[in-house]
Design a protein around this nucleic acid. Sequence first.
DNA 1: GCAAACTCGTCAGGTTCCTGTCAATCATGG
DNA 2: CCATGATTGACAGGAACCTGACGAGTTTGC
Lengths: 149, 149
Amino acid sequence: MSHSEKADYGVVSFLARHVWLGMRAAIEDELTEFGLTVPQFATLLMLDHAPGMSIAEVARACGTTRQAANEMVAGLQAHDLVTRSPHPTDRRAQQLHTTEAGRELFHKALPAVRRREEELEAGLSPQLRSAGREWMLAMAAACVMQEKD
Amino acid sequence: MSHSEKADYGVVSFLARHVWLGMRAAIEDELTEFGLTVPQFATLLMLDHAPGMSIAEVARACGTTRQAANEMVAGLQAHDLVTRSPHPTDRRAQQLHTTEAGRELFHKALPAVRRREEELEAGLSPQLRSAGREWMLAMAAACVMQEKD
DNA sequence: GCAAACTCGTCAGGTTCCTGTCAATCATGG
DNA sequence: CCATGATTGACAGGAACCTGACGAGTTTGC
């Protein structure tokens, strides 16, 4: 009761952390029914919108490292959900593509995740939901600004 | 440029994750000058507002496990920033208290963290900042609701 | 009063992720 | 044209965290 409302007193970062942890637990609960982990789902989300990404690009988009992304993609590859193929022009990089099974599983999992997120936001007004997204987009942009100092 | 603005397309959870990661990197950068890690600072924050908390209470407040909190407190204890003392009534629990050095270090680190957070929010209107907090508080509350199902 | 259920701190084991490094490859500037 | 720097994927090693379990202690319900 008190550990989530006043514990982060005055430190916005920890409030953001609690939101992320809570939402991750929610979508993790949905994804287990599809045999996917949260990072794996994130990778499928990226590859669905931008096929042919490399490991490094996925890592940057997910906010993790190349190694973690590499192991995660290996897991997806073991389940025949994605494929690695040599990049046509860059001989260092590998193109990642979702398989037919990967796309099918992803498009079944995505609605479940979206629905769960909407359930969490059910009690909020459209204005507040929009403002929350606006605030997060602005903060994310401000955070990437500071990285290049 | 594009990896933080459209990558989370439609999935709010990942947007929240990027915000948390960015803000954590920011305050982590400030805390290294004081020799503190982010979880250690979080623990000092909790203990400053509620002295005498137990390990388990700190773990719940920080959104982590008893073991992680235990090891973290051991680190703080090694630097003489907190003390463990037996609980007066509950013989299982241990009371955690900040030492004088712990309070002094914390009250030097807290303004640095606050200032860094304000810098990140510098370009936002007061209304948007307030709305962001309101959205996160509501989401955190909704997430703890779902946990007891 | 007492047994069952719960919570405390702790230990062991395993998983996940990160840092640091490497050869290979691409990009950039003189 | 070529040297320097940056990037990609991979490899080791370690740090941080979690799950599962345990004895000890407390709370709850009958």
